[in-house]
Simulated assay, not measured.
Amino acid sequence: MKSFLFRLYLMAMKLIARFTPIQNNKVVVLNGAGRSGSNGYLFGKYLQKNHPEYEVTIVEPWPSSHLPLKTWRKIGAAKFVFTTHQPFKVHARQVNIQFWHGIPLKRMGFMANNTSSKVDQRNAKLWQKNADIVCSSSDLYESLMSACCGIESNKYHKTGFPRIDALKNPVISKKQLLGDLFKTEDDEAQIGIYMPTFRYEMEDSQIMKQVQQGNFLTLFDFNIEQLNNSLKKNHQYLVVKLHPYEMKLFKHLQSDYSNIAFLNNDYLYRQDIDLYQLLGNTAFLITDFSSIYFDYLNIDKPIIFITNYLRQYEEKRGLLMGPYEEIVPGICVKTQQELMQAIARPDRYGAKRRYWLELTNQVQDQSSCANVVQLLKSI
């Protein structure tokens, strides 16, 4: 019912916004990706800083039923509408440029095990109707996206993704991260980050119960004191960045341990940054089935994969490539003991990371933001 009412709301607002004349220098970014690697937010900020010839409006959160009428008028006036999730525009004369929010690893749309054919077909029609340009990084990306969403090949443009520019050029230093999150200084510090995928969709209450009780790794042998001591011994620090849904399960997102800290959205908004603007100063990544690891390949640092729920995730939603433990460029672990050993072990996956980087980013030596601006000026 809520979904139906929201679609009615969108229809009504689009009708109102259509009465606003389009202006060629106006750009609107509909940011549905928050501050966790948002191509839209990062490109919008780049455009505001470097190209004053464009009038840029960043709308976040999106979608929302609480936008003021003046914001809808700005959406209606924009010649270019950038989106990070479903393509959207008010007028047929507007140009929708689709950034999306990650290289797909998990099945979605037509390929997913947990979606309906009716919804998939409706979404495919939205892509065909509203997405004029789809930014891409590689042939592999285009094949995966088209398999899931039915996107025509002529819509793709290999610009790369603005989040990769930010990843390569962090604005928050390692020293500041240590001070802000861990309240310490350490010249030997290695900061790692743990970013799991959206585990709620596995529909397993026990998993969410573990997270709520503090077992953010959801490992059966989880022992936070032991983990902290292991990190401390090696001058390693772990930043925990949970999915926004999981963050809501914690009353107070803070750690009482010296070498473990939670990173919440409040910190990112206070600094007026996106996660990727500090991610480049981390030394290793721990994840499960999040496609963030494709992006992390661009800074060529170790990645560790927690796979204790791999079979359950494959059955519930599915992955686009596999066998998973064979293709990922890093150590796979199922226990905390294995994880601690993996963090301390010398890296031996450099060649495999470079192999997957070549497959997923064919514009790795270019500025993605500059490529997108060039695309704007060519239209």
Rank of each mutant, 00 (worst) to 15 (best):
M1W: 12
K2L: 14
K2G: 15
M11W: 15
M11N: 08
I22A: 01
N24K: 10
G37S: 07
G44W: 02
K49E: 14
Y54F: 15
I58W: 10
P63D: 08
P68Q: 03
P68A: 03
K70M: 04
T71W: 07
I75V: 09
A78W: 13
Q86D: 13
F99N: 04
W100M: 04
H101D: 07
G102L: 09
P104F: 11
R107V: 01
S117P: 04
S136L: 05
L140C: 05
E142W: 07
A147F: 09
G150Q: 05
E152Y: 11
H157Y: 12
T159M: 07
P162N: 02
S173G: 05
K175A: 09
K175N: 06
D180K: 01
F182R: 03
I191F: 12
I191C: 10
E203P: 00
L217P: 12
L217D: 05
F222Y: 14
F222D: 08
I224K: 01
I224S: 05
N229C: 03
Q236A: 01
V240Q: 01
L242M: 11
P244I: 05
H252M: 02
L253N: 04
N264K: 02
L268G: 03
L275F: 15
N281K: 08
I286K: 01
L297N: 04
Y313E: 00
R317C: 02
L320T: 01
L320C: 00
P323E: 08
E326K: 06
V328P: 13
Q337S: 11
G350A: 13
K352A: 08
W356V: 09
N361W: 11
D365K: 04
Q366E: 13
V373Q: 02
L375D: 02
L375K: 00
S378C: 03
